[in-house]
């Protein structure tokens, strides 16, 4: 829990310029309260992925400040970064599970940060840990696949295992980088439903990058929009009317629904 009154995450004037000169993010500021389901929208290449990766420091920001759970995190190094990542789980468009390991083992990797290195090298997990991990597979409705290798699972099943891994981290914040962009519409809704469940029932704050406005309207409690690395919109999902839509996505754009 964050200290009363202050937001869980506060980003001030964040920027990232890659070594090749690409300005992925410029001067982005926003904050997120505990319990929100914040959705980030914008065209491909607008900086959404870079933004999430700056938050958990898979990418080092070029400038700006990030407060997370009462702590300045943009300059932390080594073990401190890892402790931040433990509290800030992430799921990815391409799922990023380890293909040759079973679903259960993949979930168990969610607690690597709390394990001594020698123990994790031997792959030792207590039965309590295994049961806890299995609980999260049950939560996303895929406990029957616990022993199956992840490269044998369908895309939707893999993303659910990835959610289980993220939840097993017992995070304060869940970052979801286009979690449904590689999935069919029906599977997309089921994955988004599990994210909402994590948000509402487990009280985990979610920041989610999305493409489809129909999903945004259904799941977001608040929306920010990026265009060419800048924050161009901040508000409630229903405030994105036709005019805003065209400012964010360009004059030519037309909304494609996902049913």
């Amino acid at each position: 829990m964050s200290a009363s009154g202050s937001p869980l995450l506060n980003v001030r004037s964040l920027g990232k310029t890659y070594p090749n000169g690409t300005k992925a993010l410029s001067d982005v500021s926003f904050s997120v309260d505990a319990g929100e389901f914040l959705v980030v929208i914008g065209l491909s290449g607008s900086g959404k992925t870079t933004l999430l990766r700056c938050l958990n420091r898979l990418v080092d920001p070029s400038y700006g400040e990030i407060d997370f759970a009462g702590r300045r995190i943009e300059t932390l190094q080594g073990a401190e970064v890892r402790s931040v990542r433990q509290d800030m789980a992430m799921i990815f468009q391409q799922f990023n599970l380890v293909p040759r390991l079973s679903a259960l083992t993949n979930v168990l990797t969610g607690q690597l940060a709390h394990q001594p290195t020698w123990k994790s090298l031997l792959g030792l997990h207590s039965s309590t840990e295994r049961e806890a991990a299995l609980e999260f597979l049950k939560l996303v409705g895929i406990a029957d696949k616990a022993r199956v290798r992840c490269d044998q699972l369908s895309g939707g099943q893999q993303q659910r295992v990835a959610i289980a891994r993220a939840l097993y981290q017992k995070p304060k914040l869940l970052l979801a980088d286009e979690p449904v962009a590689s999935l069919d519409p029906a599977t997309s809704h089921s994955v988004m439903d599990y994210l909402r469940k994590a948000n509402r029932e487990l009280g985990i704050t979610v920041i989610c990058n999305l493409h489809y406005l129909s999903l945004v309207r259904e799941y977001a409690t608040r929306v920010i929009a990026l265009k060419e690395g800048r924050l161009v919109f901040e508000g409630r999902p229903e405030e994105i009317d036709r005019a805003w839509f065209q400012r964010i996505y360009g004059e030519e754009a037309r909304d494609v629904g996902i049913q």
Binding site: R85, F92, N96, S120, L121
Partner: peptide
């Protein structure tokens, strides 16, 4: 690189 990102994002250290 996907699995590497995935495991790093859990807070695992370099050896893990």
């Amino acid at each position: 690189d996907g699995p590497i990102d995935g495991i790093r994002s859990t807070g695992a250290n370099a050896i893990q």
